[in-house]
Amino acid sequence: MMQIPCICCGPRDENEFVCGGTSHLSRPDLGASDEEWGRYLFFRENPKGLHLERWRHVQGCGLWFNVARDTVTHAVKSVYPITGAPPP
């Protein structure tokens, strides 16, 4: 089973967590066009390889945080706070 290193509780099994999808999306202004809203809501790079994503430790501390994970090997490269900058 994949293990996710929670930044509060340490490594735990994946079924203690939920994945909240791609990180670092910024919400457009209220006056944005349909095109911009559509892109923000639905369109994603969906990379084969490193993906920056949000996870929440729902069955543990309840914390949201960011995970840099490879979508092919499932290896977690790094974890960082929810408001943290993406790894270089």
Binding site: G21, G38, R39, F43, R44, E45, N46, P47, K48, T71
Partner: peptide, 18 residues
């Protein structure tokens, strides 16, 4: 499941998650 990979090669994005 690899639609996004091909779309990236062509230079656009899809509303797809694999």
């Amino acid at each position: 499941g690899h639609s996004s990979v091909l779309a990236k090669l062509a230079g656009f994005q899809l509303p797809v998650t694999s």
